[in-house]
Amino acid sequence: MAVTERKGTAQPAFEVEVAFALPERQKIVTLAVPPGTTARRAVELAELPRYFPELSPETFSEASLGIFGKPLRDPERHELQAGDRVEVYRPLKTDPKDARKRRASRH
């Protein structure tokens, strides 16, 4: 197991997952990260553009992030805990309010 130095004491690395999905496929990357790793840093370490070369790197570096379905307000500062799954959210193609209005106008 990897060990990292922090404030003079050795602390073991822990596992987290980073998940991203398209409608037709998904990828979950398991990482061993040191204490203090942020959600945004974990996404960088997961190297998702390597698995989705058809998408621009900004798709991942600028995406909204969440932990187990709960959106993060500040992923650049949110420090991960052992077992967390960071979810990389795709931008919405259609505003949900607009979609509801269109559906309602058809009825």
Rank of each mutant, 00 (worst) to 15 (best):
T30S: 14
P23D: 12
I67H: 13
E76R: 15
L31Q: 15
Q11D: 11
V86K: 07
K27D: 12
Q81P: 02
E47R: 15
H78F: 06
G69M: 10
L65Q: 05
A2G: 02
G83Y: 06
E5D: 05
V33A: 09
T9G: 02
V43T: 03
R85Q: 12
P34N: 03
K27F: 09
R50T: 10
K97P: 03
A42I: 07
E76A: 15
R106E: 14
P23L: 09
A10V: 02
A46M: 01
I28C: 05
E87Y: 01
E54Q: 15
A82V: 10
T59S: 11
E58Y: 04
V88D: 07
Q26P: 05
G36E: 01
H107N: 09
E62G: 10
T37C: 08
A46G: 02
P12Y: 02
E17S: 14
V3W: 14
R73Y: 03
D95E: 10
S64A: 13
T59D: 07
E76G: 15
P91T: 09
E87P: 00
A19M: 01
A104F: 04
R106F: 10
K97C: 05
K7G: 07
R40L: 03
D74A: 11
T9C: 08
T4M: 01
A63M: 13
A42L: 03
I67A: 12
T94K: 14
S64P: 01
A63L: 10
L48N: 01
R73C: 05
H78G: 00
G66F: 08
P96R: 08
E15C: 14
K70V: 12
P49W: 11
K7Q: 13
R90Q: 02
P49T: 14
P12L: 04
D84P: 04
P71E: 10
T94I: 15
K70G: 05
R41G: 00
K93N: 06
I67R: 08
A99Y: 04
R40V: 00
V18I: 06
V18L: 07
A39Y: 01
Y51V: 10
P71W: 10
A19F: 02
M1T: 13
P75L: 11
R50L: 07
T38G: 00
L72W: 06
R100L: 06
Q81K: 13
Y89K: 10
R73L: 14
A19S: 07
F52W: 09
G66H: 09
P96E: 07
E62W: 12
R100Y: 03
V3I: 13
A99K: 09
L80G: 02
A2F: 03
P34Y: 04
R90F: 04
